[in-house]
């Protein structure tokens, strides 16, 4: 009798376990966005691929411009035929759909913002999600009398040679120093004329 109860308990436990696993599987939600490539491959691709384009190359019917700035800035002025997808909402279902459609129709999404740095994060995230049909437009936007002005920029351009600047400053300072030295009159030597002491009138008689 006791043994029978034992086996009953085991079977109940087993059924419960199976139930738990099934419920777990059913409620398991597939994540909405999944990375398609891991970080190492991403790194290889971004250091190898050419994903940066300039304004002059925009004349391509396969390019679709995407403005990642917010709606306010977009309305103030944007490039012709651009779609506005704000960077913070780039992963929402609707927007991902846009990118999916572009990928299916073999078009290239060209992301741009006020400067390339701003586009960097959304670009890289989409890239890791497997959208390899995206490019980054290297421009800098500014406004002149409420009109958008876009200029090409070079990413990661070294603007100044710091070592040269420091060396030059040292050189300048040392030449200035030598010049100064010429100007400064050497301290005058004070020549004290010693007066001859009068011979003491020594005791006479």
């Amino acid at each position: 009798m006791k043994e029978l109860e034992k086996t009953k308990r085991i079977s109940i436990a087993a059924t419960l376990f199976i139930l738990a696993v099934i419920i777990g599987l059913l409620t398991y939600k597939r994540p909405k966005n999944i990375y398609a490539i891991n970080t190492k491959d991403t790194l290889e691709k971004i250091t190898g691929d050419n994903y940066i384009i300039t304004l002059n190359e925009l004349n391509n019917p396969d390019f679709v411009l995407i403005d990642i700035r917010n709606q306010y800035e977009f309305e103030q002025g944007h490039l012709e035929n651009a779609i506005n997808i704000y960077a913070a909402e780039i992963l929402s279902v609707d927007h991902i759909k846009v990118f999916d459609e572009l990928k299916e129709s073999n078009k290239t999404a060209v992301l741009y913002g006020n400067n390339p740095q701003e586009v960097n994060a959304p670009f890289l995230i989409l890239y890791q999600l497997g959208f390899d049909n995206i490019k980054l437009l290297a421009i800098e936007n500014s406004y002149l009398q409420n009109k958008l002005i876009s200029k090409n920029t070079v990413i990661e351009k070294s603007e100044a040679d710091v070592t040269a600047f420091i060396n030059e400053s040292v050189n300048k300072a040392t030449t200035a120093e030598t010049l100064k030295k010429v100007v400064i009159a050497p301290p005058k030597k004070v020549i004290t004329v010693q007066k001859k002491k009068k011979a003491p009138a020594e005791g006479g008689c």
Partner: peptide, 8 residues
């Protein structure tokens, strides 16, 4: 394969 934190 979903290496690292969520994309969101």
């Amino acid at each position: 394969k979903h290496e690292g934190i969520k994309p969101e």
